[in-house]
Nucleic acid binder design. Structure first.
Lengths: 343, 343
DNA sequence: CTGAAAGCGCTAACAC
DNA sequence: GTGTTAGCGCTTTCAG
């Protein structure tokens, strides 16, 4: 792959503007040390010439690294593609490149990707997706990120709290509570949970909210059936089958994300178990198709696109001594997949 | 954004291997001019040291530009996120960065993005998404891409044929035919089409297939109602409303992509028009949720992820004198949204 | 086949 | 304030 591109260099701009290379550079980077008058003229000339800096030269020379690394579970998972959309928006506004890679929800693979990004000299790393309950798993990642930050790199994460970096935190606990409370207030007393892979903090947090809802009504959380399968549509299928088999009196299934809820619904449909008449189902996230399922899915909406935006904006701010946290808020969206329990 | 990263340089590797900088460079880039013996030793040392080249320095020095620009309509549209997934996979395997940006299906905005990518010195540009019927609209883009290629850049497109570059071409015409033929063979004689924005070649091509199916049965294509609205879920809604109002005897609606089909289904559901009993509906693409809609959607499957892979692989091959074309194939996936017409 | 040296285009000290 | 200059880390002629 050769090196194409416009041949216009900063020297050309400098010449055209009748200033030195340094002055031109300062003008365009917004550094001070130039009179505003000269600076704006240089910017003028650059624009009229259609000049765009060469990011490789700029970065090599010790300037801002213009690229951000984004680690997601998978871009073609709606939850992550919406987050990616937000990150890309902000990056576009700032003229930054986004280097996306997949983690596959495998902590070791994820660590490899992070190291790769660092080796590629990205200036910012954004990691989206659940963390892991096991502190040892997170420790290595945390060490790597800390080292990266000490070298001047910036990091922000979405949906993980144990990394000691700036974080955008979805309202997982509160959303779980809202879901539980909604079902309980409808009169359900035989809930079951299709939970994602054990060990994911997202799963743990959402569960915690559900349990709190139970306790808030004086119910015994320990009697709640919780089935751990993959945090995917397929996992939802298997969880539903198991719940139906082992807990036939269940009247409402809480899937801990929308993908799982889709799996649950599909099994129920296959078995001709009517939703919500015979079984209520809720999801979590409100991915864009949730409203188009039949029945449309009651779920907790998280502002995924905004979360992506917020994360990059956080990372782009001047670093602070202690990690910042931004909570996302959530909205319970009641649709057609929930109703009162069957008689 | 400062410039973090590992401090290990090629000189360090060269020193450790006891060779010169030049030899080390040649060894790692795979250039010849080094004995295979020395080369492999250098690679060995580099690997054991955990050396990774600095892509900024490499690119600046005139080496391979290691980044690929990907232009999609929107990453959070499932059709494009799956394509992006394929591109990212291949890029990951090759150690390339992917810079994604949105075109928003606006030819002028798209051109701006392309120019931006070129200015950012990407080595490869992949453009996914329909082209435009108007030759003038495409001409400017084509000129820009040709200039880019003359400077050594590589380009591949997905789903457009008028750009004179390597292309991955979805089976739009044949897929349209399959959809039309399926419905006709079911006995439908009052079809209507929810077509996307006029002016998109994808729409034109899929339509052509549908019309051919009609003609192949000796039916008059000119009597087919075709409603042009946005190529989105929302467009599908509006198209459905219009079809229902202006052509009440319609028994089957062909939506020219799955997003539109979802809109159509949602209107039908709102009106309690049973699918497929009263109305059959088909889509196009087979995005992953198509199987989860209720009723599940009959559609034409396109291998989106593979299309992304193919496009980047094509672009990474040594350039050929004339543009290459790869056809994708397609599969008609019959599900529950189609059936015989109502009596 | 290997090494020395000249940049790639830009930023950041360092002078003026 | 503005200009001069020395690199950033790598690839690539050009010598040997």
């Amino acid at each position: 792959m050769p090196k194409p591109g416009s041949r216009l260099r900063l020297v050309d701009v400098a010449e055209a503007a009748g200033v030195s290379l340094a002055t031109a550079s300062r003008s365009l980077t917004g550094r001070d040390g130039v009179s505003e008058e000269v600076a704006s003229r240089v910017r003028q000339v650059a624009a009229s010439l259609g000049y765009v800096v060469n990011p490789y030269a700029r970065t090599l020379a010790g300037g801002a690294s213009s690229s951000v690394g984004l680690v997601v579970h998978q871009v073609d998972d709606p939850y992550f593609s919406e987050i990616a959309g937000g990150v890309i928006q902000v990056a576009g506004e700032q003229g930054l490149m986004v280097q996306i890679c997949h983690s596959g929800r495998d902590p070791h693979y994820e660590l490899r990707q992070i190291r790769h990004l660092i080796a590629q000299r990205v200036g910012v790393i954004i990691i989206a997706g659940s963390g892991y309950d096991d502190p040892r798993t997170e420790a290595e990642t945390k060490a790597e990120l800390t080292a990266f930050q000490n070298l001047g790199g910036r990091v922000a994460v979405i949906g993980r709290h144990a990394l000691g970096v700036d974080a955008v935190l979805p309202d997982n606990e509160a959303g779980g509570f809202a879901l539980g409370a909604h079902l309980l207030s409808l009169g359900h007393r035989h809930l079951a949970v299709a939970a994602g892979t054990g060990g994911l903090t997202t799963v743990t947090d959402r569960m915690a909210g559900v349990l709190r809802a139970l306790r808030s009504l004086g119910l015994d959380p320990s009697s709640l059936p919780v089935v751990h399968t993959d945090f995917t549509r397929d996992g939802g299928c298997r969880a539903a089958e198991q719940i139906l088999r082992d807990h036939p009196d269940t009247t409402a299934i809480i899937a801990l994300n929308d993908a799982m809820a889709m799996g649950v619904l599909s099994v129920l449909r296959g078995l001709k178990i009517s939703v919500p008449k015979k079984m209520s189902v809720v999801g979590f996230d409100d991915v864009s198709v949730a409203a188009d399922l039949a029945p449309s899915l009651t779920t907790v909406r998280l502002p995924m696109t905004d979360m992506g935006r917020m994360a990059l904006e956080l990372a782009l701010k001047p670093p602070s001594t202690r990690a910042r946290r931004r909570s996302t808020g959530h909205t319970l969206v009641v649709r057609d997949s929930t109703g009162p329990p069957r008689r």
